[in-house]
Design a protein around this nucleic acid. Structure first.
Lengths: 151, 151
DNA sequence: TCAGTATACGACCAATTATGTCCGTGTTCA
DNA sequence: TGAACACGGACATAATTGGTCGTATACTGA
C-alpha cells in the first residue's frame, strides 16, 4: 500500500535521534527505544542491520551503543530504507532484471519503473540531517528541491 | 516496503487495456483477466471497486462488461491506486488527522509527509493514457514533468 | 578477574495484510 | 427461459510484518 514499514520508520527515527545528539559518543538501543516508546529488542535488530550496512558504528560494553558512521548530511533516507527493507520496487513483478515471468504482458511495468526512480530520487535527496533540522520555527527558509519525472 | 499491491497493478493493467480499445463498447472481467493471465474473479472485484469509485461504467447481462467512465487522459494513476488500496501514507502512523497516539515523539512524520505529497503528485501526473501510449519506439518525444519537493 | 552492560544473531510466534476462491443474487439480452 | 454477465459477502490461504526469547559474544571498569 505504498507505505514504509514500522522498522524503516523506527530506523529513521533512531538515526534522527542520533543526529540530534552529535556530542554523545554513543547511545544504546535501549536509550533510543525508551525515548520513543518502541520495543527495545526490535530496535536493536534494526540498528544492527544499519550497522552491517555501514550506516552506524556499534560499540559493545558499558557506555557502548550506536553512533552514526557518517555525517548526518551524508546519510539519505533512501539508504536507510534500503538497508532495512531491502530493495523496493513499486511494481510487484520484480524477479531479476527482466521481470514478469508469467505474464509477458505486464506492459505497465516500464512506465511505473520511471515513477519508482522518481520516488527513489526524492528519498535520496533527503538526508538524516534534513530530518533532524526540521525542528524549526515556521518562518525558516525551506529548501525546495526539484525532481524530474520523464514518462 | 513501498510497493503497489497486485490489486493496484491489476487495476492499472485493466484500465490500460480498456484505454487501448476505445472502440469496444465493453469488456468483461473475464476477457481482461484472460488477456493478462490473472485470476478473473479477483479482477472482477477490483473492477467493481473502480466502478463504485466512478472510474468505470459497468453493464450487466450478456455482452456486458466494463468501460472507462471518463477519458483515459483524465484518469490518473493516483485515482486508481486510491480507489483500490485506499488512502496511502508513507508513514505508518496515520490515525486520524493528527497521528501517533502513543508516541508524542514521531517527529519524523512531518518531513515524510512532504515526501508523501510529492509521490502523490507524481502519481497524479500520470494518466491511464500515458500508460497506454507508452508502446512507442524509443525515439518518441518523452514528456518531462517537474515535481517540486520542499522539506 | 569478575560482574555488569551492551551488541549480535538465530529461532520462533503472533498479528496483520494480501491474495485468491466460492457461492448465491440480480440483471440483461437473445 | 437460459446463458452470460455484474455484484457482493464470506471464507480460505499465503505472505509479510511486528515482536519476543534465548543464547552467545564483546567490552568496560572496579
Amino acid at each position: 500500500m505504498l507505505k514504509l514499514t514500522k522498522k524503516a520508520d523506527y530506523g529513521l527515527m533512531a538515526l534522527k535521534y542520533l543526529a540530534e545528539r552529535p556530542e554523545t559518543a554513543a547511545l544504546s538501543a535501549k536509550d533510543i527505544a525508551d525515548a520513543y516508546g518502541i520495543p527495545a529488542q526490535l530496535l536493536a535488530k534494526i540498528l544492527q542491520q544499519l550497522t552491517r550496512k555501514g550506516l552506524l558504528k556499534s560499540h559493545a560494553g558499558m557506555n557502548g551503543g550506536y553512533a552514526l558512521a557518517k555525517s548526518a548530511g551524508s546519510i539519505s533516507a533512501y539508504e536507510v530504507i534500503l538497508a532495512i527493507d531491502g530493495p523496493f520496487f513499486i511494481t510487484s513483478c520484480t524477479k531479476g532484471a527482466n521481470g514478469c515471468e508469467l505474464t509477458p504482458s505486464c506492459t505497465i511495468k516500464e512506465p511505473l519503473a520511471r515513477v519508482n526512480e522518481t520516488i527513489a530520487g526524492v528519498l535520496k535527496s533527503i538526508s538524516i540531517q534534513d530530518l533532524a533540522e526540521h525542528e524549526h520555527q515556521p518562518g525558516h527558509a525551506p529548501e525546495p528541491k526539484l525532481v524530474t519525472l520523464t514518462i
